[in-house]
Design a binder for these strands. Structure first.
Lengths: 330, 330
DNA sequence: ATGAAAGCGCTAACAA
DNA sequence: TTGTTAGCGCTTTCAT
């Protein structure tokens, strides 16, 4: 219904449309009198500038994109994931932009929606998860020189890209210290061997754990294979361990679930403090209580968006990356 | 980088840009020869039409919006909620449109982002959750005659709006029948009194349960207050019940959690088949197994999007609403 | 079947 | 400080 255009406003205000345009864009070279007059008319007629036309004239879209990785169950296993979107949205709309969603699993089309958005320049900048930032996508963004921020630490070794992520080292430290404060002294960490080498977020959590343990002059006990844990089933092996383990940190939910699957078979489980990263609902309804660090996903979204705007505006001194601190949950 | 315009393509192909435009839009009034020629040039130069310019000329945005209700914890308690988005996205991009996100919790701005998107005509149509479709928003959409579809059954009594929702009656029936098939005969349903009256999805589930029970000539046992359940704590009351309850359907997760909170205190819990609606991860790690109906959220998103396109294209015979069937999970 | 030209609503030199 | 005038890239009559 907002059919009224800048031209009509101009006529109604008795000025040229260029003048109205200047008012809209907050140009300072305008007399207080005409500014007031134009603003009154605009308000009176509920004038809303047509952003499409604006975009055509300025070669901007006033839109920021977010690339969803629907294949990444890991991400959505966290039901609070939408908080990231909320954080982004808040910043994006605060800056008078829109928020476009896309993904990179190509459907029937020859181009993924992500590719289309970039190629068609439907956004002025984009936030992409590290799981989706492969060389191909990086090239694409670079070729179209589209500003972008990676959510999750950069996993492309060959290039330097701006990213925002949870501070996993700090998270590992905090969680370990929490257990130490609870009185635990023999804290194991389950960090599944090969995965820990491949995924930086895992090795970072491990690093945090090691730091905290060293600081308390305790020995790190890293479990690399589930088999090692299963040996605790055997009361004899169990006893042979010099010190009786009193806590177990699982680096991922999957690992936690593995442990929980022991069911009643393991005598150790009942007296073991379990801990993991990232909260989830119903944790209190699990068979055993689980300690965890809470991640401020909304903040992560906000930071990513703010970083993106800085990049889009070519602001100087944009940090190459941002790490978000965590704290013990609940 | 796709700086090449329709004009340049026209020159390269030795035709007028109107001809190129016709090729782009699949106009039939074109010789096979020139069409081929133009298409070759377009491909050769990786020409991508500027959708902003297209939008300006046609007064369209080629964009569909989705309004997020960030305040609705209920929705996001379901970690598979993102499947709805995936379903929508698939359809939207399939039809060469973009997918915009917005919300209706006004931040600092005087207008919610939802309102801004509508007023600024940033989308050609929008999907809005029923929790957000109040009179104000309805008026807004109507005033700007913006096509829309409600996700979740319509809760505005005074108006008729197109909606897509889970078939909760059928879900109630299916879940009850599943328990019956398992051999349960005394099936209770916990349907929290006032809430069941207020929320249609609750009363629908109840209806489905009643239908199934009636069909099997069994008596419906509706628990309206948690107190009634607690009485089962008492072995005496327990015995006085003519028939020993063997199953309990919880209408919501919250109710299920209430029950689970009984912990070890209740002798009934261990021998009671628990059931609820809507799946969730980790259900297998709960203290007791829980039966549930699975909801095809992706389908829900797809249907909503398809319905919206039908509306946008003013197709005849668009159904007033769509109910999605469910099935027993896992 | 194709071309010419007017516009979509706005911005941004350049003038005045 | 304000007005004039080109565009931005595309669609769409209206001619031919």
């Amino acid at each position: 219904m907002s059919k009224i255009t800048i031209q009509e406003i101009a006529i109604l205000a008795g000025v040229n449309k260029a003048t109205v345009s200047r008012v809209i864009n907050g140009n300072r070279n305008i007399s207080e009198k005409t500014r007031k007059k134009v603003e009154d008319i605009m308000k009176q007629y509920n004038y809303v500038p047509n952003s499409i036309a604006r975009g055509l004239a300025t070669n901007k879209t006033f839109t920021v994109g977010f690339c969803f990785d629907y294949t990444n169950k890991q991400a959505y296993a966290n039901p609070f994931f939408y908080k990231v979107l909320q954080g982004i949205e808040e910043v994006v709309y605060d800056r008078d932009h829109m928020f476009l969603m896309m993904s990179d699993h190509d459907g029937k089309s020859d181009r993924s929606t992500f590719e289309r958005v970039v190629v068609e320049h439907r956004v002025d900048g984009v936030i992409i998860p590290n799981t989706l930032l492969n060389e191909r996508n990086y090239e694409l963004l670079a070729k179209h020189n589209m500003p972008f921020v990676v959510s999750g630490e950069n996993t492309l070794p060959q290039v330097d890209v701006p990213w925002v992520d949870i501070d996993n080292v700090q998270a590992g430290r905090v969680l370990t210290e929490h257990l130490l404060n609870l009185g635990c002294r023999s804290i194991m960490i389950y960090a599944g061997g090969s995965a820990a080498l491949r995924d930086k977020f895992l090795s970072d959590r491990l690093t945090g754990y090691r730091e905290a343990m060293r600081q308390h002059h305790l020995e790190a006990q890293v479990i690399e294979h589930a088999d090692l844990l299963k040996s605790f089933h055997d009361p004899q092996e169990y006893a042979s361990e010099g010190q009786r383990p009193d806590a177990l940190i699982c680096c991922t939910h999957e690992q936690l679930f593995e442990i929980l699957d022991w069911e009643n078979g393991n005598p150790l489980l009942a007296e073991l403090a379990l801990a993991t990263f990232d909260s989830f609902p119903m944790s209190k309804y699990l068979k055993y209580p689980v300690h965890f660090v809470e991640i401020d996903l909304e903040m992560m979204g906000k930071q990513a968006a703010q970083m993106l705007f800085s990049l889009m505006n070519k602001e100087p001194g944009v940090p190459p990356s941002i790490s978000i601190r965590t704290q013990i949950g609940k």
